[in-house]
């Protein structure tokens, strides 16, 4: 089975990758494709929150958003190092949900792993998040990893 793991550079997407690793059977997974999608027309086409700050600090001369995407993909891919399945790193560009769904189709994926956004007001009020669209239109099962509750209450 080919699994597509999407990253938007957020901590939550890294957690989603770890979630997959925590329960899935590496014997059943042949390939993992870690995919980042650059949004060319967005204010920040790709923000990398995963790499250490000093590596992130690209000066004017360094490659821009593409570099950020590549380093996020590398960080997430590293989660699966030595786990078994073959890991592919991919960067696409366009609308995240569309590109993830397209990639899942092209790779004949058996599972897509995405992180769901925050639990803030904006996700309730504003139109669909990437995770939501992927859930609705993906050609295969989707694992949506939601953020943990804000403060774990004592029981």
């Amino acid at each position: 089975m080919h699994v597509v793991v999407a990253t938007d550079g957020s901590q939550q997407s890294l957690r989603a990758a770890k979630q997959l690793k925590s329960f899935a059977d590496p014997e059943k997974i042949t390939d993992i494709s870690v995919i980042a999608v650059i949004r060319p027309l967005a204010a920040v086409a790709f923000a990398d929150d995963l790499s250490p700050v000093d590596r992130r600090r690209a000066d004017v001369e360094a490659g821009g958003f593409r570099e950020a995407a590549a380093s996020s993909v590398a960080t997430v891919a590293a989660v699966f190092d030595g786990w078994g399945p073959k890991v592919h790193k991919k960067i696409r560009s366009g609308s995240p949900a569309n590109e993830i769904i397209k990639a899942a189709g092209q790779l004949n994926a058996g599972l897509v792993v995405v992180a769901a956004g925050g639990r803030g007001l904006s996700d309730v009020v504003l139109v669909g998040s990437t995770a939501q669209r992927v859930q609705h239109y993906a050609p295969c099962p989707v694992l949506v990893v939601r953020p943990a509750p804000k403060k774990p209450r004592k029981k």
Partner: peptide
């Protein structure tokens, strides 16, 4: 979930040792 799902993948060769492999011009 079918395990033969990976047929039809165009296996992409990492180009020029770059960190990210190419997706048939879709990058």
């Amino acid at each position: 979930m079918d395990d033969v799902a990976d047929k039809g993948i165009t296996e992409e060769a990492p180009r020029g040792g770059g960190p990210v492999d190419d997706d048939g011009g879709l990058r």
